[in-house]
Design a protein around this nucleic acid. Structure first.
Length: 893
RNA sequence: GGGUGGUUAGCUCAGUUGGUUAGAGCGCCGGUCUCACAUACCGGAGGUCACAGGUUCGAAUCCUGUACCGCCCACCA
């Protein structure tokens, strides 16, 4: 695979990404082998909705999954990342309806079949784009196993589940008040009807006594338009204000329908007037209140499905056909005219809205299919409580737990056309109410032999999504994939769908597979704009991941996401300043590229492997970089193991940039360019270290690492396919070298600081006088003399204890003093001031550390190494103090 | 109303079980086009870790309270 083409001086992601991705797919490295002996690692993708193409939130979610899957794959596990898309019932239907609306068409104009075909057209378009987008950001999914929640095999699973739950007594048909969206014309589950704050009014309305006598009782309501559905008024039985009123009858204003006054303990006496109107058909609480009363009320529905006032006797003629808002305004006017509106108060409250079209939900009494959740929830709850299921970060587990504890039955039928049709058939024979629930259409009614018709409704989209972890693998058949890849391991998703999806998947997993679908739920944050608003189409604040890929490259995008997002924390991105957002990632890619360019340009002949190099010839810097390399391998592996992706990315970033590029490359240049001996050793070490860095970085930045890898003459397999995750080799651990080279870095830094401080021209050569504080220091300076001279731009390095005169001073971490004589070029007063300042600082530190050491409790109770560190500090600072004092005296300050 | 998270540098955020002089990126200031990289290099400024108590030899870190943000859930119409 090695190529000798020249690398461009700037990294151009667009030039390589496509080719690299193609090479991966051609060799099928993403495919999981069901027959392999390796331990599996499985992630199922949260299938993106086919409503529209991917946004940055998907970029975040899928990048994290790809990092995990690539890491485990490189580690040698049989990694399966199963991709796919979700038909997203109500959401997709809405999108297509909106498209139709632009042609001034409604779905009813097309009819069911033609409409569904239109949706399929949309799906084929977006579905394909979504998969392309995933590829563009580098996702290493097993594309052979791509699934869609409306695939035939998937539909079979959905039907099987419905029938099985019905047989288990866990699905039933119920008559109750559900959330109804008057725009989508469908029922919704509790989770789909989300609360939003709204400024409204509280209307105080007088219900006169039946028979037309004056006064009556006053009722407070936010929804006067529902009053014609009232069946009674209720007050609390112990409310003295209304003592003796039960049994009396009032007339509903405007309609004159007479209703009784009853008692209910459900009434809050402090709210409104303490008298509540009961409208069972349009309020779930009222439905319950009415049901608890001894009377058997009719529950009149006074609104049509699209929430206009119905053409029924109870509704006054003048109001019929008005939508609920217009009706409310009109009712208020009429009440006012008749003197029945006592007062209106502003009132802020939470109102349920359709989560797809944001229309206010209309509670409505109807027949729907429900799933009984209690028994399903039990194992899902237990799984979290006994640790079989963990959340990252854990706080989301509590959210999951709370929901399961208070779980209620799930309305799964939707009056939509796009989705899985409910596998229930109703007998059409008169008087026979038999319902057949079966996977396939029955020939005739099992009870009476009459003809049957299928339920018109479809299932809640989540009723198919909750089967994703096993329906994608061929369930209900016992396929090899299921045997091998279920249960999976990590689910990466957002906290917004814990209830919709995560919890329900766990329930389905236990009920149908007898096991959890995954063991860890990694919660990614939400991508927000600088005002901390979530990206949304209506705000137009989103960033298209493909734009970023195009401008900065997929690796820059991925690095930014991974390095910037700890688990569960939101990511802020500013569409107006993409440079600020993605500069770090892009710059790092370019840095890595140039590190590669430098190293590869010196590999005319392939270097010997590290193990064949003579370690006797290693210099201090060589030992240092190898030791650092072992350390970063260990730390990065640990970080990824613990799913600290941001730590992993930053660890390699700093290793490559701060250590490999800024120090080691500069350190070995003379050997690379032949002005010093030992070039072969340097090249061998460079290739080794660079290769390890590429491996460590590959999960986060797959494209550039793969591209650079194939230019390494000693590597012949693709990084992803052939190379394993690096392992630290303790043989190269070398704390002594790390300490010693640290002192070299400190010395070079000290001289640079002095040069900058005194504005010494770059061309000017200086001499540094060093007074080493310990043996490690002196040997390090001796070993790295040439390096120090070059990197600190010095003409000479002297070791002497008696450096005096005017110059710049520095102190290293171990107390070693550095003095750079600057002759008459510098301002003595200024130097004195500087030294005094330094001395004051040291004095402060000494006071603090001496305070600690004087504290008997500290010395006896703190860990020995901590105390020892403090002692060393004290020693070293004391020496610095003396040195500084001597300098000051020498300068005559 | 019940949960739950946050408050650390100008901005966005890290900070593992309490333990060197609290870090990064971006931005800012000063100096460099030094033969891999100006998407770079070198140096630097900038923080009483929201506030008040407490525990401890020692607190950004643990406890209590306060003040602001935020998110989730919730049948006072």
């Amino acid at each position: 695979m090695t190529e000798t083409t020249e690398l461009a001086p700037k990294y151009d992601p667009a030039a390589i990404e496509r080719g690299v991705y193609q090479a991966w797919t051609e060799t099928d490295v993403f495919a999981a082998d069901v027959t392999s002996e390796r331990e599996p690692y499985v992630i199922v993708i949260p299938p993106p909705n086919v409503t529209s193409v991917l946004h940055m939130g998907h970029g975040l979610n899928n990048t994290i999954q790809d990092v995990l899957i690539r890491f485990e794959r490189m580690r040698g596990r049989e990694a399966l990342w199963l991709p796919g898309t979700d038909h997203a019932g109500i959401a997709t239907q809405n999108v297509v309806e909106r498209k139709l609306a632009r042609e001034e068409l409604r779905r009813q104009d097309l009819g069911r079949e033609a409409f569904v075909e239109r949706v399929w057209e949309h799906v084929r378009e977006t579905g394909g784009t979504i998969l392309d987008q995933l590829k563009a950001i580098g996702c290493s999914c097993d594309w052979n196993r791509t699934r869609f929640t409306l695939d035939d095999s998937y539909s079979r699973a959905v039907k099987r589940v419905f029938v099985q739950l019905h047989d288990d007594g866990l699905i039933y048909r119920g008559h109750r008040v559900i959330h109804w969206c008057p725009r989508c014309l469908t029922s919704l589950s509790d989770e789909e009807a989300e609360f939003r704050e709204r400024d409204d009014h509280l209307y105080y309305i007088r219900y006169p006594w039946a028979g037309g006598t004056a006064d009556g009782v006053i009722v407070a309501t936010t929804r006067p338009e529902t009053m014609f559905g009232d069946v009674c008024l209720v007050c609390h039985p112990e409310d003295e204000r209304f003592a003796g009123l039960t049994g009396r009858t009032v007339a509903i204003p405007l309609s004159g329908v007479e209703i009784p006054i009853e008692h209910s303990t459900a009434v809050e006496r402090d709210f409104g007037t303490g008298m509540l109107k009961v409208t069972p058909a349009h309020d779930p609480n009222d439905f319950d209140i009415a049901a608890a009363l001894p009377e058997d009320f009719d529950t009149p529905d006074t609104m049509t499905p699209d929430a206009t006032m119905a053409d029924v006797p109870r509704v006054p003629d003048a109001l019929r056909g008005l939508d609920r808002d217009a009706a409310r305004r009109r009712i208020v006017e009429l009440l006012e005219q008749q003197g029945l509106l006592v007062k209106v108060e502003p009132y802020r409250h939470s109102v349920r809205h359709c989560y797809r079209c944001h229309t206010i939900v209309e509670p409505r009494l109807s027949d729907q299919w429900f799933v009984r959740m209690r028994t399903l929830a039990a194992p899902a709850l237990a799984a979290y409580r006994d640790g079989a299921l963990t959340f990252m970060p854990d706080r989301w587990g509590k959210v999951y737990e709370n929901w399961l504890v208070g779980i209620r039955d799930w309305n799964i039928s939707r009056q939509l056309w796009w989705g899985h049709r409910i596998p229930a058939w109703y007998c059409e024979a008169d008087g026979c109410e038999h319902i057949t629930v079966a996977e396939d259409a029955p020939a005739a009614c099992a009870a009476c032999g009459g003809s049957v018709r299928q339920d018109e409704d479809v299932l809640d989209t989540w009723f198919s999504s909750w089967l994703w972890p096993f329906a994608t693998m061929g369930w209900p058949d016992r396929t090899p994939d299921l045997e091998r890849f279920y249960p999976g391991h990590t689910l990466v998703t957002g906290p917004d769908i814990i209830f919709f999806w995560v919890a329900r998947m766990v329930m389905a997993g236990y009920h149908f597979m007898g096991d959890r679908p995954f063991d860890t739920v990694y919660m990614n944050g939400i991508v927000r704009d600088p005002q901390h608003r979530a990206f949304s189409k209506s705000l137009g604040n989103g960033i298209d991941p493909l734009d970023v890929v195009e401008q900065y490259g997929a690796d820059a995008l991925r690095f930014t996401i991974v390095a910037g997002a700890a688990a569960g924390t939101d990511v802020i991105m500013d569409r107006n300043d993409l440079d600020a957002t993605f500069a770090a990632g892009r710059n790092f890619a370019n840095k890595l590229w140039n590190v590669g360019r430098l190293i590869l340009s010196h590999l005319a002949s392939p270097p010997a492997p590290l193990t064949e190099l003579d370690r006797e010839t290693f210099e201090l810097g060589d030992r240092w970089i190898l030791a650092r390399c072992q350390r970063v391998i260990r730390e990065t592996t640990t970080a990824l193991d613990r799913m600290r992706l941001n730590d992993a990315a930053n660890l390699v970033y700093h290793f490559v940039w701060d250590e490999l590029a800024d120090w080691y490359l500069e350190h070995v240049k003379p050997r690379l360019y032949g002005t010093a001996a030992g070039g072969d050793v340097a090249r061998g070490i460079l290739v080794h270290v660079f290769g390890r860095a590429l491996q460590l970085l590959h999960p986060v930045m797959p494209f550039i690492t793969e591209e650079l890898w194939r230019h390494i003459p000693t590597e012949h397999e693709p990084l992803l396919a052939g190379a394993r995750w690096p392992e630290a080799d303790p043989a190269y651990d070398d704390e002594e070298a790390e300490t010693a080279f640290g002192l070299v870095q400190g010395l070079v830094g000290a001289v640079r600081t002095i040069r900058a401080e005194y504005h010494v021209p770059p061309a000017a050569t200086l001499t540094a006088v060093v007074t080493p504080a310990g043996s490690a220091a002196s040997s390090a300076f001796a070993a790295e003399r040439e390096t120090i001279l070059r990197l600190a731009k010095l003409a000479a390095l002297e070791t002497a204890a008696d450096a005096e005169g005017i110059g710049g001073h520095g102190v290293l971490s171990d107390g070693t003093a550095v003095f750079v004589p600057l002759g008459d070029a510098i301002d003595v007063d200024r130097e004195c001031a500087r030294l005094s300042e330094e001395l004051t600082r040291i004095d402060g530190l000494l006071t603090s550390v001496r305070g600690k050491l004087a504290n008997e409790n500290f010395v006896t109770r703190a860990p020995a190494d901590v105390v020892e560190r403090e002692r060393e500090k004290e020693r070293s600072w004391r020496e610095q103090q003396e040195t500084l004092a001597a300098k000051l005296r020498a300068l005559g300050c």
